[in-house]
Design a protein around this nucleic acid. Sequence first.
DNA 1: TAGATTGTTAATCGATTAACAATC
DNA 2: TAGATTGTTAATCGATTAACAATC
Lengths: 247, 247
Amino acid sequence: MSTEPPGDAEPHAAEGVSPGASGGDIPPAAVGRLSLYLRELRRLAAAGSDHASSRQLGQLLGVSDAVVRRDLAYLKPQGRRGVGYVIRPLVQRIRQTLGSNQVWNVVLLGTGSLGNALLRYQGFQEQGFRWVAAFDIAPERIGTVVQDVPVYHTDQLERRIRELEANLAIIAVPAGATGEIARRLAAAGITGILNFAPVALRVGDEICVANVDLASELQQLAFSVLIAGEPADGKPEKSSLKSSKNP
Amino acid sequence: MSTEPPGDAEPHAAEGVSPGASGGDIPPAAVGRLSLYLRELRRLAAAGSDHASSRQLGQLLGVSDAVVRRDLAYLKPQGRRGVGYVIRPLVQRIRQTLGSNQVWNVVLLGTGSLGNALLRYQGFQEQGFRWVAAFDIAPERIGTVVQDVPVYHTDQLERRIRELEANLAIIAVPAGATGEIARRLAAAGITGILNFAPVALRVGDEICVANVDLASELQQLAFSVLIAGEPADGKPEKSSLKSSKNP
DNA sequence: TAGATTGTTAATCGATTAACAATC
DNA sequence: TAGATTGTTAATCGATTAACAATC
């Protein structure tokens, strides 16, 4: 009955709120940060705090306190003036908003070294995501079980996705195979794809795609270093520039 | 003499331009896309094209043609009206701007499954990044060589970084170890850190940090799926929403 | 009460879009 | 020339900052 995922031992997590409702008008920039607030709030709670201020959260993430307050205000007032935010209900509220309140069944495409690392990555489970299957085409991998997740032949993609009621997919296959895989995922009913292959996925409008291009991340970092080293108009010298994807 | 990295067999890559100069005033949003244009331009070139239009590039990446033209205009006019962009010189210009023209020596911190996957990831080398060392504290890993990259004990971090003239570092260690590692990297002269650990790094202003939080990426995707499923005010139904980190 | 911190406003800054003259 | 596509402008949209009254 409860859709409470593991990992977060919150006593009354499944309260009388419709999970995931009412988040339609939060700006993307704020959504990106909500997930990071969640991370830091949990860390604070684990360290024994039960309150946090916008100033504190802002410093932890490198954003201004005004941004934090604005972001959290999208969740309907949760803070107390003069006091700050009570961590536990705030964590619940953020989870509810982001949809972390419900279980997402995730499949992995490609069990190469990156795919393997993703399966072993602890962070997904901790946020309430559940691996239900992995797919590959290499005969020696099929039938194995990695971190409790069974590896099937990609032939079985459609069947297993339906069977296991998977919602999300993570693609970690070679670039060339990506387009075809994405089409099949969409057709099989997957509603969101996190794509690690260095290609721009063009799929239908009825499926969400987020791309993570590791080489591009490093390249952007290198550029930041470059311009930090040649300030506006002086001689090259170390200068302040804090690049952070979610600033 | 030439600082031409491998991977891109461009004949006259090291022309008489100062590498990496003149990029100080490109907006961050554009920088993020430049690296993706580069990727697609290479693919087009490999497929035999020698010209590309802003419309074509825009469609490949899911952005408007106006954005593409504006972005590329930051590099000083490169296109030809009525024709489009000649791919080869444009690739060179983007590489020069981003600093891909020069070699960046990269060290890896942490050779767990994620670290291993990063070492094996082809994309970094292809963009001109060069692994020079990896560090770990697990005795059984020290002294091994992964993909031609030697694994040293973290004790040797400062010495090896100086010796190998490393510029950039990628952190793939457990969250708890990250702060200390980052401080040491900064002290040792590293100028940029790509951080995969789920913590907000607070380091001095003389070093650039970019964070990649994998769990947060998946969480943002889930949120996109959620609001795509509950359109503005109707009954839940699939709807258009194309989430992409670099839209 | 006094001190602290929120929620929110108005002002600024940055990015995207639409449109079109310039020009290949 | 005619058709195509750039470079760039003006208008719109979105996000951040600074400030402060409200209130715990």
